[in-house]
Design a protein around this nucleic acid. Structure first.
Length: 805
RNA sequence: GCGAGGGUGGCGGAAUUGGCAGACGCGCUGGACUUAGGAUCCAGUGGGGUGACCCAUGGGGGUUCGACUCCCCCCUCUCGCACCA
């Protein structure tokens, strides 16, 4: 393998940059700031794959580019170091999770350096460091004191493989967010953050940020705001009533039964003795079902009659009360009014159990016959008393007004989103700073007693409770309120708490007495470009936004949206097309690629293989192209170390064009086509019947400066080979002269009836009449005109001439 | 089912406001240099005829002098969400 000696030059310049402190960042109010951030990585034991690099290479390129553009750039890196895999590893090997974490972060850092990233390592942070999690605990208290953290006993999703509880948001399709599919439910006390209190702002503030539409759409859907009417239905013969929520109050006259979720708290009280056995059997069966089964839309609706009847308050009608698992306790009020004529699920249920299906919204062209399926669209109200005859949209508002006026019901908003379950029954997380006192109850740990430190001793859990519960020296404490004996909360916080504020810590990572320096936060925040995978579209990005709004409300930060611009890189698949994973044995590491091709080739290939935001597949052969290109750049510059400046006007024009293309390409994250532009330029220069690889010094320097953010080591070596003692990365970004981009001639395409027949080269300033004349006289065009009258000649400036005959 | 984004050579992918389809790269073919080549360089490379012509951007219509691009219908792939009342 011939070519430049990347094995020598890459480590050499990495060490030099470090020594020079080239990437250190300080606050500098005189310069415009630019905060370029990666998603907070969890340092797994497997280390980085080339797939992860698809995140870190583009952000590094952007950071380097912005520095050369004169920005004061903050480009930090740190570790989301708490988490289940480190704890699992610790259990397996009987060591403290700290050891696994330290080893893993060191490996990540080594790999990130290996690929030539320009992080300011003086700002490195670690969420499992007490210096850090002290403040995570402090923000827990902030939420607690603002009424946004609370403890509740509830049925929790439980993943036996992770040995931990999961929030609703971490459970999808009956599968936990790490992919385990054996989750069940457990009744446990747990801590929650009241993110639902910010539901509306989490939706409305999306309008002010520059994020991919698919992500904002997912967040809107996740919050799932829906407006409707809530009202109570009395249960006949009892003092109880059932509260229901509907978004279609226009159909309220069509209620033919009422359905409770199996978990509804009033089930026991309402069920009549003769139905009790059936109801309990149904309820037990529903609980045992997995979410997948219960959520399947293919399935028929099932249910069981309670023996009780509810009264429809709008017309006094008595309707039967059922239990059915298609109604969820977690949404709305856990009870619905069922209108089979106008809801597909209610229709299925009514059909199965022989319940009436009265039509109250006449669909357009309805013939008065019974419906064969639910009619869920608009129509005209019928059989609705005084409201009959109204269009359903109007009817909805009028009935809602009427119910509010009469005190029957009221307008209400519900959200799909649930509060954020923060408790984990795990060791390796930030302890929740609460003390349980027999006398005082739950008492928050005072700020000045933080951090609540994790014990140095680690032992695996024996009970399914947090391992901390088995460590007496951790548990036993005194009550901050009364000084009496008390026990510490043993739940720790899930990792999403740590990642909800880390970007603030980077602005001033060495503060001891406070989480961050407010001036540094004011200077650096918000993050200007935030890059990471789309898989965090909902959880992390929603939680972090929530925390910033809370902090903004508390006056701690002067903004409420932390990430001004968000970008999602595409996934990188293994050559087989599958996802890269250790279990498939198809992981390609940056280590092996750097060993064979060097870091600059790896960087360039990852940028070149596909558009930044689209999925791509690693190709063992494809990388040869970028490797060859860099070798050509090397040879080109080395060949011209002593060439005098004698660039032709055309070369100068192309150089200016390259500056324009690269500048715009980087600004718009079109890295793959930008690299093509470099290749075209080098091909032009190397053409054997053209310049044959001879360029002047200023051209060589310009190319190196432009290429520096892409291939930082190679360009630095060549920059020094040209005799410079400073760094290529400290050069200013070149400008281009738009006047020089224009060439003296232009080539137009000649078409006859829209088909290409020839080309015409004319002076760039030729007028339309001249062009028209030359086109009609053109030897390749004339044969097509013979015997036909020219109907029309379309002249498009600088593009083409189309002759219609 | 709903929402979003895609379908262009053997492959990855290019094509400002509609204006030479296939830039750039991989691979492949032939050649040069070589003891050797998985190195490097040169030439070629959508398909068909193999003349100067025709056909081609998932399929079918439409608008236009001109459509990968705009409009309508259909097929298909990927990713989200999904008994949400």
């Amino acid at each position: 393998m011939t070519g430049y000696d990347f094995k020598t030059i890459e480590p050499k310049w990495q060490a030099w940059w470090e020594e020079q402190g080239l990437h250190r960042t300080g606050t500098d109010p005189k310069r415009p700031k630019f905060y370029c951030l990666d998603f907070f990585p969890y340092p797994s034991g497997e280390g980085l794959s080339v797939g992860h690099c698809r995140n870190y290479i583009p952000t590094d390129l952007i950071a380097r580019y912005k520095r050369m553009r004169g920005y004061n750039v903050l480009h930090p890196m740190g570790w989301d170091a708490f988490g289940e895999p480190s704890e699992a590893f610790a259990i397996k090997h009987g060591i403290h999770p700290r050891l696994a974490t330290t080893r893993n972060t060191a490996n990540y850092k080594r790999q990130l350096r290996l690929i030539g990233t320009s992080y300011d390592w003086s700002r490195e942070i670690d969420s499992s460091d007490p210096e850090y999690y002290q403040w995570t605990q402090s923000f827990f208290l902030l939420l607690y004191h603002r009424g946004l953290a609370y403890r509740d006993t509830n049925w929790q999703w439980w993943c036996p493989q992770c040995q931990t509880t999961l929030s609703n948001q971490e459970v999808g399709d009956g599968v936990c967010w790490r992919g385990h599919n054996t989750i069940t439910k457990k009744l446990l006390p747990a801590w929650f953050f009241r993110i639902t209190a910010y539901a509306d702002r989490l939706i409305s503030d999306l309008d002010g940020i520059d994020w991919p539409e698919r992500i904002t759409t997912m967040q809107r859907n996740w919050v799932g705001r829906s407006e409707g009417v809530e009202f109570d239905m009395e249960v006949a013969g009892t003092n109880e009533s059932i509260r229901v929520f509907t978004t279609r109050v226009d159909t309220v006259f069509g209620v033919s039964f009422v359905v409770l979720a199996p978990e509804h708290p009033l089930v026991d009280a309402l069920t009549t003795p003769e139905h009790r056995a059936a109801v309990e059997a149904y309820r037990d069966a529903a609980r045992l079902q997995t979410d997948i089964e219960r959520a399947s839309i293919e399935r028929e609706q099932t249910g069981v009659f309670t023996g009780a009847y509810a009264i429809n308050p709008v017309n006094g009608q008595r309707v039967p009360l059922y239990l059915a698992d298609y109604v969820l306790m977690g949404y709305g009020t856990g009870a619905i009014m069922a209108v089979p004529a106008h809801d597909a699920r209610d229709f299925g249920f009514a059909t199965r159990y022989g319940l009436p299906i009265p039509v109250v919204i006449a669909p357009p062209e309805w013939d008065g016959q019974p419906l064969s399926e639910a009619s869920t669209g608009d129509g005209v109200l019928v059989n609705c008393g005084e409201f009959s005859g109204l269009p359903s949209r109007d009817g909805l508002e009028r009935i809602a007004d009427w119910m509010e006026h009469r005190g029957i019901g009221r307008r209400q908003v519900h959200y799909k989103m649930r509060d954020w379950l923060i408790s984990r029954q795990r060791f390796w997380g930030a302890p929740i700073p609460i003390v349980h006192c027999v006398r005082c109850g739950m008492v928050p740990v005072p700020e000045d007693e933080l951090p609540v430190l994790l014990p140095d001793r680690y032992q695996p859990a024996t009970t399914g409770r947090s391992p901390l519960a088995d460590i007496p020296e951790f548990v036993q404490t005194t009550c901050p309120g009364c000084g009496g004996p008390a026990e510490r909360e043993t739940d720790t916080m899930g990792g999403f708490a740590c990642s909800s504020w880390y970007f603030l810590r980077f602005t001033s990572p060495h503060e001891h007495a406070r989480p961050f320096d407010p001036e540094a936060v004011a200077y650096w925040m918000p993050v200007d470009v935030y890059v990471g995978g789309a898989e965090h579209a909902v959880m992390h990005l929603l939680y972090a936004r929530f925390w910033m709004k809370v902090m903004a409300d508390a006056g701690l930060v002067p903004f409420s949206e932390p990430f001004a611009k968000l970008l999602n890189q595409g996934q990188l698949h293994a050559p087989s097309g599958q996802r890269m994973s250790k279990s498939r044995g198809n992981v390609i590491t940056p280590d092996s690629v750097v060993e064979e091709y060097g870091a600059d080739t790896l960087r360039l290939y990852e940028l070149f293989m596909a558009p930044f935001d689209e999925d791509a597949t690693w190709s063992e052969e494809g990388i040869n192209g970028t490797s060859r290109f860099l070798n050509r750049v090397w040879a080109l510059v080395m060949k011209n170390l002593d060439t005098q400046d004698a660039d032709s006007p055309e070369l100068i024009r192309r150089r200016h064009l390259l500056v324009k293309q690269v500048s715009e390409g980087v600004e718009e994250c079109r890295f793959n086509t930008t690299i093509s532009r470099f290749m075209e330029f080098v091909n032009y220069v190397n053409a054997p019947d053209g310049l044959d690889g001879v360029i002047g010094r200023s051209t060589a320097e310009t190319v190196l400066i432009l290429l520096a953010p892409f291939a930082p080591h190679l360009t630095e070596e060549l920059w020094h080979a040209l005799g410079h003692a400073d760094s290529v990365h400290q050069q200013g970004w070149p400008d281009y002269d738009p006047a020089l981009l224009v060439s003296a001639e232009m080539t137009l395409v000649l078409q006859v009836n829209g088909k290409v027949r020839g080309q015409l080269t004319v002076a760039a300033d030729a007028d339309e009449e001249t062009i028209r004349r030359l086109a009609l006289e053109h030897e390749r065009v004339r044969p097509y005109l013979d015997g036909h009258g020219v109907k029309r000649v379309v002249v498009v400036p600088k593009k083409l001439v189309n002759i219609v005959v």
